[in-house]
Amino acid sequence: MRVRVKSAPIRYGGKRFEPGTEMTISKEYFEGILFELIEDESNEETVESEAAREAIVDEDGGEIDE
């Protein structure tokens, strides 16, 4: 996840990050009180996989049965 540190300095991965600093963190460490979300890579992967799934059709031209 790409985030921006909000109002208080934080430590992550043994480094100190000042407010306004952009950084990449694991989703499990995201706290809305500490970070402003810039980009959520997992969301993009979901969108891409859904688009790929929609592009696949069965031989009859219908949708895939799950």
Rank of each mutant, 00 (worst) to 15 (best):
V57A: 07
G32D: 14
I33G: 15
M23F: 08
E50W: 10
R4V: 06
F17R: 02
N43S: 10
R2M: 02
E44R: 14
E22L: 08
A55C: 08
A51K: 15
E22N: 12
P9G: 00
R53L: 15
G20T: 06
I56Y: 13
A8D: 05
Y29V: 10
K27Y: 06
E59P: 00
E36L: 11
R4K: 15
A51I: 10
I64A: 07
I56P: 08
A52F: 12
E54C: 03
S7Y: 04
D60G: 10
G61I: 13
S49K: 14
F30L: 08
P9Q: 04
G61M: 04
D65V: 11
G14M: 04
E28W: 04
E41W: 07
Y29R: 08
K15R: 14
F30V: 03
R4I: 05
M23G: 00
I64K: 11
E44V: 02
D40H: 09
T24D: 07
M1N: 05
I64L: 15
E41F: 12
I64E: 14
G13Q: 13
S42R: 14
E18C: 03
E39L: 13
E50G: 04
G14N: 05
D65L: 07
D40R: 07
I38K: 12
D40T: 01
G14P: 14
G62M: 06
S49M: 13
R2T: 01
L37I: 06
Y29C: 02
D40F: 04
V57T: 15
G32V: 02
E63G: 07
G14T: 00
D40E: 14
E36Y: 06
A55F: 10
I38F: 04
I38P: 13
G32C: 03
D60I: 00
T46F: 13
K27T: 09
E31G: 00
Y29Q: 04
G13I: 02
F35R: 03
